[in-house]
Amino acid sequence: MSERYDIVLYGASGFTGAYVLEAIAKSADTNVRYAVAGRSESKLKATLKDVSTRVDKDLSKIPIIIADSGDESTLAAMARQAKVIINVVGPYRLYGEAVVKAAVENGASHVDISGEPAFLEKMQQKYGELAAQNKVYIVGACGWDSIPCDLGVNFLKQNFGGTLNYAETFVQLHTGES
Rank of each mutant, 00 (worst) to 15 (best):
V104W: 00
Q133M: 11
Y137I: 10
S73M: 07
L164I: 12
R4P: 03
L94I: 08
S42Y: 14
C142M: 11
I66N: 10
E41C: 04
T163L: 10
E168N: 15
D68R: 00
G14D: 01
G90S: 02
E116N: 14
N134H: 13
A102Q: 05
E97W: 10
G11F: 03
K157E: 13
Y127S: 12
N154W: 13
L151N: 12
N134T: 09
A37V: 05
L75K: 02
D29R: 03
Y10K: 03
S13Y: 08
L21W: 01
S114Q: 02
G96N: 09
D56G: 09
E41A: 09
G161F: 09
G161A: 15
I65M: 06
Y95T: 09
V36A: 01
L48K: 03
V100E: 03
I85W: 00
A67F: 00
R54C: 02
N87D: 14
Q158C: 12
S27W: 03
I64Q: 00
E129G: 08
A28I: 02
I113A: 13
T16I: 06
G14S: 01
A82S: 10
V104L: 05
V51S: 04
S52C: 02
L48M: 08
L59P: 00
I113R: 05
G107K: 10
K61E: 10
S27G: 14
V20H: 05
T175P: 01
V88S: 11
S146I: 07
D112A: 11
Q133T: 13
G143W: 05
A37E: 02
Y166C: 10
E22C: 07
R33N: 06
A108R: 04
I66Q: 05
V171A: 09
P117E: 05
W144N: 05
K61I: 09
C149N: 11
I85H: 02
L173N: 08
V104F: 05
S13F: 02
Q125T: 11
D29W: 04
L9Q: 07
R54Q: 11
S27A: 14
T53S: 12
E72A: 13
T30G: 06
V20S: 03
Y10L: 12
S42L: 11
R93C: 06
E177R: 11
D68W: 00
N134A: 06
A23E: 15
S40M: 06
S40Q: 08
G14R: 05
R39G: 05
H174V: 14
F160P: 01
A82W: 00
A12G: 06
V51E: 01
G161E: 12
E121G: 06
T47Y: 03
G107R: 14
V136Y: 01
S178A: 11
T30V: 12
V51I: 13
A82H: 08
A141Q: 03
L21A: 07
I138F: 01
A82D: 08
V99M: 07
S109C: 09
G140W: 10
D68P: 00
K26Y: 08
S13W: 13
L151H: 12
L59S: 00
T53H: 07
L151A: 14
N134P: 00
I7P: 02
